[in-house]
Design a protein around this nucleic acid. Structure first.
Lengths: 204, 204
DNA sequence: CTGTTAGGAGTACGCCGTACGCCTACGTGA
DNA sequence: TCACGTAGGCGTACGGCGTACTCCTAACAG
């Protein structure tokens, strides 16, 4: 008998994401999102309890684009894990300004449950069993989460590297060389290079 | 000839850290830090340009407690890398509420340069050469950064695990088992278990 | 002594999240 | 048909934030 809702939570999330993509995370405010939707600020509170919940919706929307099903290939498990990881990375990277949110609101991530389920299946296929399998999954997620963040909060070949390659060569011989090497490595090679190290540690 | 400063930047950082440890990151404000130091709010601006700089000082203070020198042991390189990583983790974990800051202010981290230098030395000893060495270091940092964050934003054996082990067992067979297994794994075993996977992938 | 600079306090502005109240529009069960 | 319950929409208000600015005093170096 009540009057039907005129917006969905997903529409709120879309508006918030539009604000974030345009004005950065610092530009996200209840007032800005309301303006984006052409409604009054307080109207938002009909759909979310507070800003925190809105941020959760944004994260949900970003991660909902991750395909959680195991790749339909007969490629080796390592390649299939890489495909799964690449999907996650691509979805998150599509909205770099929202990356910090993704970390803070890991809780309500129903979409990632299915992703994790597929991942555990691949790990089982790789011969990882028992407690080791849980540890392997969490470790993998840790790597992915950390790498994505580092990637979007100052790249390897960015300003930091310049400072590094200017370090006194006598006290920082390794760093100086690393700084030189780093210039030739793009973000993709770095990310999947590190992933390959981890996967090599996993199995036979 | 000028009047001498009565506070150091490190004292500001200490006061800010005290506020964070007591009231959480949300409790950190210029007003709160000023009160902690018994001075007026605007007095802080004699020592820092803005809040961002203050946060940087806090991170610097937390990470300054990391011993960057290579461990003086003749243990295998894997063990020595683990020692280096453990130092970093211990320092960060001493102020869990400040963890999000640590991620955001990675730039100005002179202390970690020496830590990285030592780490690169150990990687060289492990036989990792050339570009692979840079990738290995960044990958290691990614894992550590990600794992520390996951650890402090909802633990493996926390509320999330309960939800997981309640998933429909037919559609999430792996997750259900993982949820059961996870209860027996504490944060330490999880962290160093994942690290061990990565290190196994590095060498011989 | 004098000039320079730090110290300290206070005020004010423009943001923020959000509590609250008011009146209107709608769709349904009576 | 109509009254009721809920959503819509708008505006105001409060307390907190970062920080720009001003004014006066205190301490040291030449």
């Amino acid at each position: 008998m009540p009057r039907p809702r005129s917006l969905t939570q997903d529409q709120l999330a879309a508006a918030a994401l539009a604000v974030i993509d345009r004005d950065g995370l610092a530009g996200l405010s209840m007032r800005a999102v309301a303006k984006e939707l052409g409604m009054s600020t307080m109207g938002l509170y009909r759909y979310v309890a507070d800003r925190d919940e809105l941020e959760g919706l944004v994260v949900e929307r970003v991660l909902s684009t991750v395909d959680p099903s195991p790749p339909a290939t007969d490629a080796p498990w390592r390649d299939r894990i890489e495909i799964m990881v690449r999907r996650l990375r691509d979805s998150v990277s599509a909205h770099p300004a929202a990356v910090p949110l993704t970390m803070t609101h890991r809780h309500r991530l129903p979409g990632l449950l299915r992703w994790s389920e597929s991942m555990l299946g691949l790990l089982a296929e790789a011969g990882v069993e028992g407690e080791q399998r849980v540890v392997a999954l969490r470790g993998l997620i840790s790597y992915v989460v950390g790498a994505i963040q580092l990637e979007h909060l100052g790249s390897l070949s960015g300003a930091g590297t310049v400072t590094i390659s200017e370090l006194p060569r006598d006290r920082f011989p390794y760093m100086a060389e690393a700084g030189r090497q780093a210039r030739g490595i793009d973000a993709d090679r770095e990310f999947f290079g590190g992933l390959a190290v981890y996967l090599r540690g996993l199995g036979g």
